[in-house]
Design a protein around this nucleic acid. Structure first.
Length: 413
DNA sequence: AGGACCTTTCCTGATT
DNA sequence: CAATCAGGAAAGGTCC
């Protein structure tokens, strides 16, 4: 695990970060490096910067001049290792601040060396956190702290039994959803609402473990790391959108124990989702012609309902090649998905093609993405010279002259 | 409203 | 045989 300082990237906010190559800014580096032994300082600093509008009970007091980032030395904080408001809330509902407080609490409690902590890993909401397996947490936070966090998280989850009231949906929304589901799946019988909705919720939560985790987390910040944001990356909007819609689309059941036994990425984590269920039904019953199928009609229920609940405009600029590039240039979040074959020439290889496709699908809110489809989009890049062909080598691609932001000179590493 | 752009989806056939 | 590659065709979503 890389430390905050080693990465050369100082996160002040998911949408506000400083990229500080070590060789260019040794003073800044040293400052953070030395100061980082007290995570509370960093966390509180981050909280103060990230969530000025949110209350921060029991955590800190800051005296920071307006209009600029506070200097570490300007912050005084309450060093009492008290529980924050997270303790009274279902982890599913934790805000980023709650997660940050929770991590801070355990860091202090375990006397974890905060200099080893990557602040990147501290910025996630409860929904994202709850999808993380023990292994993922241990990868992110180290064996000791990771295990402690996992244990704490599971305890917190257990305190809040599965309850439809915790889906975040109002009663009327639940009724509406139930109606739609009943209409869409008349062959599914059972008492209204309960079993049917539970089926959907549980299935939607199936994508657990690394794929889900990596993505949600990765998604939250990599778009801000793009060396060149000249391709319309609207990271600001996107970052918040993904977390907001995600809470509904990927409602991890508090009961769903993320698998500790499968270190590999689940190849088809969404295979039992309602959407796929609908799609497979239609595919099996009749063959369609070439090309993209028509939009689903209202009668197709659940998925359409989900769509209508989503924001009307997904942010533009989520280009596939940029997504791929960002995985490659942030190996600390890569988790073995892809690797450089020839860093200088821009040759890279998919190691877990389906996992990458799933991540891409998640980014685009499309749970049925596959490597097959992703690779078709990749092949379109040949013509535009964003990618170059690499003949005879499976899963290997090469960046072309019209791609940017991946070269060592551009990334600094 | 319409067109450009960037996929997404499906398909057939070839190759590894 | 399964996975991947190649590329045509058609359509969707977003932006301008």
């Amino acid at each position: 695990m890389e430390s905050l300082a080693v990465s050369g990237i100082v996160y002040l906010h998911p949408n506000l970060f400083m990229c500080i190559p070590r060789h260019l800014s040794s003073s800044v580096y040293q400052e953070f490096s030395m100061a980082s032994t007290d995570l509370s300082l960093i966390l509180n600093n981050a909280i103060a910067n990230l969530y000025p509008s949110e209350s921060q009970p029991n955590m800190l007091s800051t005296t920071v001049p307006m209009g600029r980032s506070p200097h570490l030395s300007e912050i005084t904080f309450n060093s009492n290792s008290t529980m924050g408001s997270w303790d009274q809330v279902n982890p599913q509902m934790w805000t980023r601040q709650n997660v940050l407080e929770w991590i801070g609490f355990h860091v202090e409690e375990s006397r974890f060396d905060a200099s080893l902590l990557n602040m990147n890993y501290c910025d996630m909401d409860g929904v994202t956190l709850c999808t993380m397996s023990k292994e993922t947490l241990m990868n992110m936070f180290g064996l000791v702290l990771g295990e402690q966090l996992h244990h704490s998280l599971e305890s917190q989850k257990a305190r809040y039994a599965t309850d439809l009231s915790e889906t975040g949906l109002s009663e009327s929304e639940l009724d509406l959803l139930d109606n739609i589901l009943q209409n869409s799946f008349p062959y599914i019988h059972g008492p209204s609402l309960g079993p049917l909705l539970e089926t959907v919720v549980v299935q939607a939560s199936i994508p657990t473990d690394n794929t889900e985790n990596t993505y949600s987390y990765f998604d939250e910040y990599t778009s801000q790391l793009t060396p060149e944001s000249d391709h319309g990356y609207d990271s600001l909007t996107e970052s918040f959108q993904s977390s907001n819609t995600g809470s509904f689309l990927n409602p991890s059941s508090p009961e769903s124990n993320s698998s500790d036994s499968d270190p590999e990425y689940s190849e088809m984590p969404y295979s039992t989702s309602t959407k796929n269920f609908v799609k497979q039904e239609s595919v099996e019953t009749k063959k369609r012609g070439r090309g993209r199928p028509p939009k689903p009609r209202d009668s197709e229920g659940y998925e359409h309902f989900i769509q209508s609940k989503k924001s009307k405009h997904a942010p533009r600029g989520t280009h596939l090649w940029e997504f791929i590039r960002d995985i490659l240039i942030h190996p600390e979040q890569n988790q073995g998905l892809m690797k450089w074959e020839d860093r200088r020439d821009g040759v890279f290889k998919f190691l877990k093609s389906e996992a990458v496709a799933q991540l891409w699908g998640q980014k685009k809110k499309n749970s049925s993405m596959t490597y097959e489809k992703l690779s078709r989009a990749m092949r379109y890049y040949y013509k535009r010279e964003i990618l170059e062909r690499v003949d005879g080598r499976r899963l290997v691609y090469k960046f072309g002259k019209n791609s940017t932001g991946w070269r060592i000179e551009e990334t600094g590493y």
